[in-house]
Design a binder for these strands. Structure first.
Length: 279
DNA sequence: CTATAAACCTGCTGGC
DNA sequence: TGCCAGCAGGTTTATA
């Protein structure tokens, strides 16, 4: 579930809460979460390192440690980072970090798809090298987006979910962005004209910023580090609103499957025909 | 290149 | 009320 806004929101909270803290102890409760590293090796190597910075790249949360290592955390479908003052009752804990001020930082993950990877700083950079541009960075221009989409004939929805095209978009924010830009999800990615690419870039930025502002979208499992749900679901226009009226024109929202993912759009505002092509 | 399916996992929902 | 098939925000890998 966690897409860029959910990861960014948590990154900001963690910066305020655990920056500068030393990890005094780590416990791996589900070994596959830290693959490919051995669980005991992970615990030994992370213990004693201090948290020097917290960053985000796409949907990856990067916790930089003073021993030359970094933790790359990907929450995948159901992972959360929960901060506890003392041992409370968090469920599905896969990795537990004890900090030097007594706080407990827990990686919880019912479905066990999430990953907490410990590697050297250089290694992390290499593993993230394939990611596309950061959509909230100032250099994410319409020209950059157009260049990334190239002449691809795949559906624009599928392209937006591809982290090599743009980093951080997932199913929710892809649908919302296309709705705001009035682009049909099945449009071939390379067929968008200049005006449409510009509108899409603006829609992506606005949609993501909106999501961050509301603490992320929670319809299932996303929680912030204090175990609070985000409120952005109240603000989405099409995602999971099949059959409900389009907020713009009243036409019922349609749901189709694109790239094996549920895809929601307004059939009147987002037309497939009548589109011009980009040379 | 593009598309599709399957795999990794568990919990929740909707239909019967 | 109860059971079960199907579905879920993500990514990777195999196959056509």
């Amino acid at each position: 579930m966690p897409e860029l806004p959910e990861v960014e929101y948590v990154a900001r909270q963690l910066r305020a809460a655990v920056l500068g803290r030393r990890i005094t102890h780590a416990a791996v409760l589900w070994a596959r979460t830290v693959t490919p590293m051995d669980a005991r090796e992970f615990e030994a190597r992370v213990s004693g390192q201090r948290i020097t910075s917290i960053n985000r790249r796409g949907k990856h949360l990067i916790v930089v440690l003073d021993g030359g290592d970094a933790l790359a955390i990907h929450r995948r479908m159901s992972g959360n980072l929960i901060l506890e003052r003392a041992r409370e009752e968090a469920l599905y804990v896969r990795v537990a970090f004890t900090l030097d001020d007594g706080q407990l930082l827990l990686f919880t993950d019912p479905r066990k798809f999430g990953r907490v990877t410990l590697t050297s700083n250089g290694e992390i950079e290499r593993s993230l090298a394939e990611l596309g541009p950061e959509p909230l960075a100032p250099d994410f221009t319409a020209a950059v987006l157009a260049e990334r989409l190239g002449a691809s004939r795949r559906a624009i929805k599928a392209a937006l979910l591809d982290q090599r095209i743009v980093a951080g978009l997932g199913n929710i924010y892809a649908d919302e962005s296309l709705f705001h830009a009035r682009i049909h999800p099945l449009r071939p990615a390379g067929s968008l004209n200049r005006r449409e690419v510009t509108a899409l870039r603006e829609a992506i930025v606005a949609t993501l910023l909106n999501g961050i502002e509301h603490g992320g979208t929670t319809f299932g499992r996303h929680r912030d580090i204090y175990n609070e749900a985000g409120s952005n679901l109240e603000h989405v226009q099409v995602y999971r609103r099949t059959g409900k009226p389009c907020p713009r024109c009243g036409t019922p929202i349609t749901r189709i499957t694109v790239a094996q993912r549920g895809t929601h759009f307004c059939p009147k505002c987002q037309r497939l025909r009548g589109a011009s092509s980009r040379p």
